[in-house]
Amino acid sequence: MKPTLNEQLRQNIRFTYNEALELIVAMGMAACGEQMYAMAQDYKIEMDPMADSFYEDTKARLSPHTFRELQFFFGHNFLHKTLDFGFYVSICSNPEPQSADDWIRSLEAVPAEWMLTEMVFGVYHDKLEELLQGRDWEASKGNLSLLAALVRDTPPHQEVIHTQEPLLECLAHPEECKLRYMQLLSQFYKDVFIRWKEPLKERSEQASAHYETLFAAKPEQFIREIHKNEPEIFISFPAAFHVSQASQVGNHFLNFTTAAGNVGWVIFGIHNERVFGPAADREQTELFLKAFSDKRRLDFVLLLKERPHYGQEIASALGITPAAVNYHSNFLFFLDLISVKREDHRMYYHLNVERLRELLALTAKVMLD
């Protein structure tokens, strides 16, 4: 008899703590601190006290030079792995968790050319065809002079455009680049991480036990609603979930085909339930219903459904003042229902129709289960 999807998920997914993975996530968090705080604001949550303390302690303990190196390799975009991509590959290609110290030592044997190639992939994975100009990626791996020429001619995605020059610098000096990142990893581990590794592990493992219980009860629902992914991907790619205190919020699925078979790791934010879980769904529903407790906000949305309007048009149509337009729009901005774009020297309000559909569906789900 064929096992059910829930049975297959229970068989293929495990929860385990990977210290090496937490090290590089923590380095990314420290390098992208301002991005992390902005992301927390977007999700309407506060960074927890441990994350605050870790970030401040990192800045205090690292020398200015080491902190600049941290930002050079890790500080480009916390959600888009770039120059740090090779570090993730080297850890997540191994199905078993590693200590941070063991992983740093193992990296000594990794050729600089391999790491630089993975850096290129990290920066250009969403523009790889444009970068290669018809060439085969497998055949281009390790050819740093070719990759440097291609990188020079191809701007990365706009979100990580500023990684182009640092990447070219690394490609021009591969052995020096390796010395730099090995020194950075060792220094960060010695000066910062070793002081925090036990508290980070303890907090992560506490959360991991909670999430593992939720997963075991309803695997498919957990993957869809809190991991925000399709359960079927874990049928062909067994995975280990690393619940990360440093990540705070996130669902990064890294999967690789190795000589030993398929390997997958999920970096799962410790506060994911607050953002993606049933409590978050209920909070969003409450805010959505509250937004339309005033008839004028419903009229506001129905007006924008016809076409974008600028502020004075909305005020005239609804019979309210421009100040009242600002007041009512705040409720809709908070739910990402509207956005503002400048056109013809005016600021036009636009309705996010897909977001409206999502909130209507979410409201039905919460209220009707």
Rank of each mutant, 00 (worst) to 15 (best):
K2M: 10
Q8A: 07
Q11D: 08
Y17R: 00
A20W: 03
A26F: 08
C32D: 05
E34C: 12
Q35T: 06
A38N: 00
M39S: 08
A40Y: 05
Y43I: 11
M47S: 15
P49G: 01
F54G: 11
D57T: 07
A60H: 12
T66I: 06
R68S: 12
Q71H: 07
H76D: 08
F78I: 05
F78S: 00
H80A: 06
S90A: 15
P95L: 11
Q98F: 02
S106H: 10
L107W: 01
E108T: 12
A109S: 11
P111A: 06
E113T: 14
L116F: 08
M119V: 01
F121E: 12
G122Q: 05
D126G: 09
D126M: 03
L132W: 05
W137L: 08
E138R: 07
G142I: 00
A148F: 09
T154W: 07
P156T: 05
I161F: 07
L171G: 04
R180T: 06
Q187G: 01
F188R: 12
K190N: 08
P199K: 02
E202G: 12
E205I: 09
A209G: 13
A209L: 15
A209Q: 15
L214N: 05
A216L: 03
Q221M: 06
I223V: 15
I223Q: 02
N229T: 13
I233G: 14
F234P: 02
F234C: 11
F234W: 11
I235K: 09
S236P: 11
F241G: 04
V243K: 08
Q245T: 14
Q245D: 14
L254S: 02
A259L: 05
A259R: 11
H271T: 01
F276W: 15
G277N: 05
R282F: 09
R282I: 13
L298A: 15
D299I: 04
V301F: 05
K305F: 14
E306K: 14
S316C: 08
G319C: 00
I320R: 01
P322G: 07
A323I: 06
V325E: 13
N326P: 01
N326L: 06
L337K: 10
L337G: 10
I338Y: 12
R342C: 14
D344H: 13
H345P: 03
N352G: 10
V353H: 00
E354T: 12
R357Q: 15
L360E: 07
L360R: 09
T363R: 06
A364H: 14
K365C: 13
D369I: 00
